[in-house]
Design a protein around this nucleic acid. Structure first.
Lengths: 142, 142
DNA sequence: TCAGCGAATAAGAATCATTCCAATCAGCAA
DNA sequence: TTGCTGATTGGAATGATTCTTATTCGCTGA
């Protein structure tokens, strides 16, 4: 039985299988929630968005699913200061802009040459697997 | 009575005064702790480093002092994922390299042109007050 | 089809960093 | 000395997340 009109992404089942994990309805609705509204929700926000569709899901399961998706490289976990973790289904290289007034988060695409330039500041011997770039300030009023 | 052989930085009293705040022995020892060992300690680590010198200080006060120092722009607060906040007395523009194996943190100096290049990715209207750049990976064995 | 097994889920307890709170305390001014 | 304001203390409270335990699910082989 299909719980949502959203097509579950072919990606998900594939990636889970690649990691030797099972696909489950919970993982599907959680992943879908991140795909349909890309506003960097917290685990708790995902929980409330998902409950109408699946009222029996638990917050612990939402945390588990999100962690699984992060491990499968389908989702990025984003942290600002010590606030609750936020989750992001945009896999293209991008920075985050955190609006200090509204708390909103915007993705800023990162051209490869900028990324390369940033990596060039590393002294010899430092092997960076990931680079995180976060701006804090005020976004346009729009 | 001087509690430490470290000279309390002339900066501190000045900066506190500029913000209309008082200088206190607690703020001095906390700031000094960050100056003498620049390994990005957590509040708790500062607490244990400072207690031999001032056994009556409380953890809450360490938190308060650190927050005060951050607000006076004498100290930077650094967060990795959702781990405890770390504190850094290096005020020159720099990125952080977080060693995933050891947990150690290294400062990576940031030339102004790299910083400018990074800022150039922002679309018109985005006003960034600060940029945070963090590398995750493996640092040289040295 | 059914039993068995490991993985996934659910519910609630536990953890940990941090903040809050209420009661003192310290330094300066009148 | 007395007040006043900000700072410190110690402990309680908070909040996000993780852990624990029992239960359920889904697949595999008989």
């Amino acid at each position: 039985m299909r719980l949502s009109h959203q097509e579950p992404p072919a990606n998900l089942a594939q990636r889970l299988a690649d990691s030797g994990l099972r696909n489950t309805p919970q993982r599907e609705v959680v992943y879908n929630a991140l795909l349909v509204r890309r506003d960097h929700p917290t685990a708790d926000e995902v929980y409330t968005r998902v409950r109408p569709e699946m009222p029996t899901i638990s917050l612990a399961t939402v945390y588990n699913c999100l962690e699984t998706l992060v491990q499968c490289d389908l989702v990025r976990q984003v942290n600002f200061e010590r606030g609750p973790s936020r989750y992001c289904a945009n896999l293209l290289p991008h920075a985050h802009f955190h609006d200090e007034k509204t708390g909103a988060t915007y993705d800023i695409p990162l051209p490869p040459e900028v990324l390369a330039h940033v990596r060039s500041v590393l002294p010899a011997g430092y092997e960076a697997k990931t680079v995180e770039i976060t701006f804090h300030g005020q976004a346009p009023i729009a």
